[in-house]
């Protein structure tokens, strides 16, 4: 995940991209690897030596896919959802507000499906480190395997532990306690983990808590304010994705009663004027070829292709509240 190269080689971790929601993460296996879907069959050995990111024709020539290098963003879309996962926008906002960069030392609890962990690792590598805690043993193990497969395991330490009870201290790792730049909590009762967080943070370090319910936020904020945290802010972020397409759009030729005052055009030619003035110059570029006239109920109309964009109807209404705070001990 942390290296990109131009040519596909044996053993590479790549994404086979057949569409926005048709992605699969695979490890190139020259011996027996094969990817089969309705977009055709692909033997891995035939992918080797091809340029990454280019369109690749299937072995039986009945389709094509793109092979892309694995990024944290594609991973968070394609990964195996063991839990409710954090989405890219929340992840971006967390990383931004926790001020993470190459070299940051971070604590995360719980690991969940490892979607945020991968993005954090991408940002803090190679000089930083992520200590992630998961109280579900199987999930911790699955996350370890994913991190190994994606070759980010040397930047992440996965610990199977109930952080609310046992805290975040890893005393066998020298210099861990007191060096933490940022703590991220995604727990049912985050306020129980705040004292544990303080135990490993340095002064001026950031904390973020992600909670879907406002009652959790309320408790967390009270606890934060009582524990010498400042800059306590709670925000929610939602994303709107736009559907953009060149689409047939019908326009009725109706006389414009407001043009007569500004132009001296006689009413007979008014239909012409209307069509030309109502089209901004930028749009003309796209409807160069297709123009058809039609008639409906005695009104003339013009069919043409327009470049249109609207938000997609299916959208997320809520993910969770993000509470950020900085620990500034005053004594």
């Amino acid at each position: 995940m942390l290296s990109q190269k131009k040519i596909i080689e044996d053993g590479d971790r790549v994404v086979i991209y057949a569409g926005k929601d048709k992605m699969q993460v695979v490890t190139i296996d020259a011996k027996s690897g094969e990817y089969c879907s309705k977009f055709g069959n692909y033997k891995h050995k035939n992918l080797i030596g091809k340029e990454i990111g280019t369109k690749i024709q299937s072995d039986n020539n009945n389709g094509f896919v793109h092979v892309l290098s694995l990024t944290s963003e594609l991973w968070s879309i394609a990964l195996d959802h063991r839990t409710q996962i954090l989405f890219n926008l929340d992840i971006s906002t967390i990383i931004f507000n926790l001020e993470l960069k190459n070299g940051s030392k971070v604590v995360e609890s719980g690991t969940g499906s490892g979607s945020l962990s991968s993005s954090i690792a991408r940002t803090i590598a190679p000089n930083g480190h992520l200590y992630t805690f998961e109280f579900h043993e199987e999930r911790a193990e699955a996350a370890r395997k994913d991190f190994r497969d994606n070759r980010i395991d040397k930047h992440i330490t996965v610990t199977h532990r109930d952080a609310c009870k046992q805290g975040f201290r890893l005393d066998h790792i020298e210099g861990m306690v007191g060096s933490i730049d940022a703590v991220f909590l995604d727990l049912p009762s985050p306020w129980e983990a705040i004292d544990h967080a303080i135990a490993v943070m340095h002064e001026g370090a950031m904390l973020c808590s992600f909670s879907p319910c406002i009652e959790q936020v309320q408790n967390t904020c009270l606890k934060l304010a009582a524990s010498q945290f400042q800059e306590i802010t709670t925000i929610e972020v939602l994303i709107r994705t736009f559907d953009t397409r060149l689409q047939e759009f019908e326009e009725l030729n109706l006389s414009n009663p407001y043009t007569s005052t500004t132009t001296t055009t006689p009413p007979t030619t008014e239909t012409n004027t209307t069509t030309s003035t109502s089209e901004p110059k930028a749009k003309k570029k796209w409807n160069q070829n297709k123009r058809e006239t039609f008639e409906i109920g005695g009104i003339q109309g013009l069919k043409k292709d327009s470049l249109l964009s609207k938000p997609i109807s299916e959208a997320r209404g809520h993910t969770g509240y993000l509470t950020f705070a900085r620990w500034v001990p005053e004594n």
Binding site: L68, E236, R240, Y321
Partner: peptide, 18 residues
């Protein structure tokens, strides 16, 4: 290009007080 997307973000801050 693939995975093309145009997005906009809606962000709102909460006042959290008892």
């Amino acid at each position: 290009a693939v995975n093309l997307q145009i997005t906009e973000i809606w962000m709102r801050e909460q006042q959290v007080l008892p």
